[in-house]
């Protein structure tokens, strides 16, 4: 399997503090890959680096073998590498329908149109309707996203992201703040979306991780501590120590 996304010697400092430190990392095509680690381990920072929302202090990032270290976030997204945010990110003042349209305006190349209207693009409308019903948002189609419940916001975020039809999906704690039922629903949606895509996922919920992930990377204090399948990493004493607050490892 080819590497879709690769980090080589990636580091990021915040005023002398290394949040991500010399990380080598490879995301293999077609897998669901989870990054786990205690709070402050640098998982979100790694995500921000991979999607170019932060620039690395050192190291390189490759997408399909090409160096993309110098790209800006929108360019990364246009290459098909799309992320979600740890705190749910919807366009609060736009309706659910308009939120999903936001993905399709760009992929249909009419984001720069001052005159055409979505009403006259039946293909877009159909695709939006399809996403809305697939994610059971029918009742809320014309609700402002800011008025949705937290769980629904997360669903909407995922729906918008998937409407882009990305090759690589980076999800930062998609289950955070959700109730039991929502977690089940989103787990299914993620698994289903994984078909034909590559997914990188940060998650604290170990049940979800063991359910979904083919491959796991454990980060601690900005460094990669372990890598392997769920069974492999979960049995390593240094990983357990990192999670239970033990100070030494290795």
């Amino acid at each position: 399997m080819a590497n879709v996304l690769e980090a080589r010697g990636l580091s990021r400092e915040f005023g002398g503090f290394r949040a991500v430190s010399n990380v080598d990392f490879a995301l293999k095509e077609g897998t669901i890959h989870a990054v786990i680690g205690p709070n402050g381990a640098g998982k979100s920072t790694l995500f921000n680096l991979l999607t170019k929302f932060l620039s690395p202090s050192e190291g390189r990032i490759l997408h399909k073998g090409e160096d993309v270290t110098a790209l800006r976030p929108p360019a990364m997204a246009r290459r098909g590498v799309v992320r979600s945010f740890q705190i749910s990110a919807v366009f609060a003042g736009l309706t659910v329908r308009e939120n999903i349209e936001m993905a399709l305006l760009r992929t249909n190349g009419i984001g720069w149109s001052f005159f055409s209207s979505i009403a006259r693009r039946p293909a877009i409308r159909r695709r939006v309707d399809e996403m809305i019903s697939r994610f059971s948002l029918d009742e809320h189609a014309d609700t402002q996203a800011g008025n949705l419940s937290y769980g629904r916001k997360r669903v909407l975020e995922l729906a918008t992201t998937l409407a882009l039809d990305p090759d690589v999906l980076l999800l930062d704690e998609p289950m955070a703040g959700l109730g039991h039922e929502d977690i089940g629903r989103i787990t299914d949606l993620v698994r289903e979306s994984g078909k034909g895509r590559t997914i990188l996922l940060v998650e604290h919920n170990m049940r979800v991780v063991s359910d979904l992930a083919d491959q796991i990377t454990v980060m601690v204090r900005g460094e990669v501590l372990a890598e392997g399948s769920y069974a492999e990493v979960s049995s390593r004493p240094d990983v357990i120590a990192a999670y239970t607050g033990g100070q030494h490892h290795g």
Partner: peptide, 10 residues
């Protein structure tokens, strides 16, 4: 409403 989100959509 959310500039980083718009960037993440490309």
């Amino acid at each position: 409403e959310h500039e980083p989100r718009a960037q993440s959509l490309g």
